[in-house]
């Protein structure tokens, strides 16, 4: 309740503070309020909107040159008075398709797809398994741009250290869905796919900072990602030979069978178990042996004078 009061008061003040309130607002005018506002509000049932924009982080993002209303097209005047502005038909159509997933501002989400912005990426995404799931099947749990890239307000270059989709962070980003139990069951993802990747040489080397180690998107593609079973997928059939061959020249069908991300085969499992038993058994033997030797050494020196040397 006090939150709403704060917002109200802030709105009152900003009305007075901002000159030319009815001109097309630039980012600075929006940030007058949203840079200072804290907390969040409930837009509709269960949809929480964070009202704060961290100005410092926004100014360092690749989108810092944009005005808010270039994406948040529904707002023309400030503070957001009805009626909403007219939105480009293509953006509005896409926004309608995304509305099941993108509840806060579907128009702003759809704005990414504009030709002058990320039109090419959108084309690839729309054809991908992710895009089809969201746009055609209107699924509420498929990924839209911000699901992987994070908030567009703070978005970093793909090569940036903090980017969620950079070479070293993208595995965790994919894992945020592909490791989720309910999504794995719903979409029949390969179970343990993340775990099996992480324990592979590829995953381990990536963790240690090997820039040549492949992350998910290096083999599976990114915006244009397909099901592995889709003939267009870079990891399906003959494509897999080419994909593996990028790093492993001479890769054959026999070679590419090495990477499946499938759960451990029983033979490998029991081989591992056998080796663990052997290892632990040997540990126990040598530790007992050393401890007994220490014990006998001390005993001999204390109680059997020179006994050790006879």
């Amino acid at each position: 309740m006090s939150n709403q009061l704060t917002i109200f008061l802030l709105l009152m003040f900003s009305q007075a503070l901002v000159p030319a309130a009815h001109a097309a607002p630039d980012a600075a005018s929006c940030l007058t309020c949203h840079g200072a506002m804290q907390g969040s509000m409930e837009k509709e049932k269960g949809v929480i909107v964070n009202l704060n924009i961290d100005q410092d982080r926004f100014s360092k993002s690749v989108h810092s040159f944009l005005n808010c209303v270039e994406c948040h097209m529904g707002f023309t005047s400030q503070p957001h008075q009805a009626p909403a502005a007219r939105v480009d038909a293509a953006v509005q159509n896409l926004a309608n398709a995304l509305s099941a997933k993108s509840k806060i501002d579907a128009v702003a989400q759809a704005a990414c797809a504009q030709v002058q912005c990320h039109g090419d990426v959108y084309k690839a995404y729309k054809a991908s398994v992710h895009g089809q799931n969201v746009i055609v099947k209107k699924s509420s749990d498929g990924p839209v741009c911000t699901s992987c890239h994070g908030s567009p307000h703070y978005i970093q270059p793909r090569t940036g250290k903090d980017s969620r989709v950079n070479h070293f962070n993208v595995v965790e980003t994919c894992g945020s869905c592909h490791e989720e139990k309910h999504l794995t069951e719903k979409y029949k993802f390969s179970p343990l796919v993340m775990e099996r990747y992480k324990e592979s040489f590829h995953g381990r080397k990536l963790k240690l900072g090997h820039s040549g180690a492949p992350a998910c998107s290096d083999c599976h593609g990114a915006h244009d990602i397909r099901k592995a079973a889709d003939p267009a997928s870079p990891v399906s059939g003959a494509n897999k030979l080419k994909t593996c061959g990028k790093c492993h020249p001479g890769a054959t069908t026999k070679f590419v069978a090495a990477i499946t991300h499938k759960p451990l085969h029983p033979v490998a499992h029991y081989a591992e178990l056998g080796l663990i038993i052997l290892t632990v058994g040997t540990f126990l033997f040598i530790i007992i042996h050393v401890l007994l030797d220490v014990y006998a050494d001390i005993r001999d020196r204390l109680f059997r004078k020179g006994g050790n040397h006879e």
Partner: peptide, 14 residues
């Protein structure tokens, strides 16, 4: 092929 690589890895590492 379905198990040889995992087995080699375990052999090497364990």
């Amino acid at each position: 092929l379905p198990w040889i690589w995992d087995t080699l890895f375990t052999m090497h590492s364990d």
